[in-house]
Design a protein around this nucleic acid. Structure first.
Lengths: 209, 209
DNA sequence: AAAATGTCGTGATTATATTCACAAACAATT
DNA sequence: AATTGTTTGTGAATATAATCACGACATTTT
């Protein structure tokens, strides 16, 4: 389970590789080179080869990589053979967008349940996902370990505390709040305002022309 | 305009600093230390001091940073004194979430218009933002240089081409497609599936316990 | 079967980012 | 006014990541 020493930067690219290999496979492509991959996903070809090499010698010199083999390899590396169930907290606009999005298409990740505090939403289904009251977090979560957090800023800290109590191990946090969690809980922040502001900043200060 | 040599990693943190300083200022706080900031936004205090130092000596030894001064400094650095107008393409679930989100609260970024291909949406307003047909991109965009791309995968490449033709310089791309653009156009990718998969991967392979 | 071509895997190099650790400067206290 | 405590700013060290560049080997062509 812990074959560590794979650089984080590499780990973050794995899902990207996986998806593109899936596409190639569906198109019936049999082989692919690091150069081809590079052009498609905009990652330097040497970086791709280096990334792959952390897992051993997956390719053949003068030939490239066998799509099916590589895909199978990444499928098991990314644990795509088993389904990962996640919960979504906060069925507002952004949350609803997720609920209507079919993650399962290419990935074995599925949103199993959602939580909200709006009486009108509790008890209904959104995108086929049942919505429970946030008060039911503890009892409903079961062994789900990953949560998508799309609640308003004002709720973020309180809900986070509840999630941690209920045994959540990973949070994909879309609120601007830098939530505080114990050391054994992993949080990835996606801060949409920050991303937009950063893009604007780069445009003005790092002209590409 | 190009005071370059500020590391990209630093630039990406600026909006984060800016928002937190804004909060402090609203709370009436007069001074803040790198240590305090560090605890709030989960960035090492040495990193914060280093980041700030790229802009000169902004603090006082033994005292910390003056909130109001620092805020003012970042406001102008991040060009927050002038409004940046952006366009949103694709008023689906995710797009609608953005349209209902008030970026302008803390940031002078505003979504000025949206584009969609759904006849039922064209001509309406969502979250106070007018929705036009994607066929009107060229004529309506005006001098808007930044676009948020929330269209389905199947549309991504075609729309991107139109955006580039219409003079867009920056794209915040929420589609899984690694769109191809000329060198003078900047693209930031936010790939929600990849983020979720990466979080799951880290949980399984990089245990924190 | 020989030559030409393509492509990997990786040692070495370079680039970028983080963190340590401490002198210097100021603030607070007595 | 002297002492103590705080916090910056940064040189140096370390860590992480990207890129170069080429030997080795498989494939393809002639």
């Amino acid at each position: 389970m812990k074959q560590s020493k794979i650089p984080q930067a590499t780990a973050k690219r794995l899902p990207l590789y996986y998806r593109y290999l899936n596409n190639l496979n569906k198109q019936g492509k049999k082989r692919v080179s690091s150069k081809e991959l590079s052009e498609a996903i905009k990652v330097d070809s040497a970086t791709i080869r280096r990334d792959f090499s952390y897992f051993g010698a997956l390719g053949k010199k003068g030939y490239g990589y066998n799509v099916e083999y590589l895909l199978g390899f990444f499928r098991s590396t990314l644990d795509q053979h088993e389904t990962t169930e996640v919960a979504l907290i906060g069925a507002g606009n952004l949350g609803t967008a997720f609920l209507n999005y079919n993650f399962t298409k290419n990935n074995n990740i599925v949103i199993k349940m959602a939580f909200d505090s709006d009486e009108n939403k509790i008890g209904t289904e959104i995108g086929g996902v049942p919505v429970y009251s946030v008060d039911q977090l503890q009892e409903k979560l079961g062994d789900i370990e990953v949560a998508i957090l799309t609640v308003p800023v004002s709720e973020a800290d309180a809900i986070t505390e509840k999630l941690v109590e209920a045994g959540i191990k990973g949070i994909l946090n879309f609120t601007p709040v830098r939530i505080t969690v114990p050391d054994n809980v992993r949080v990835h922040h996606i801060d949409l305002t920050v991303e937009l502001q950063a893009l604007v900043y780069f445009l003005k200060h790092y002209p590409l022309d």
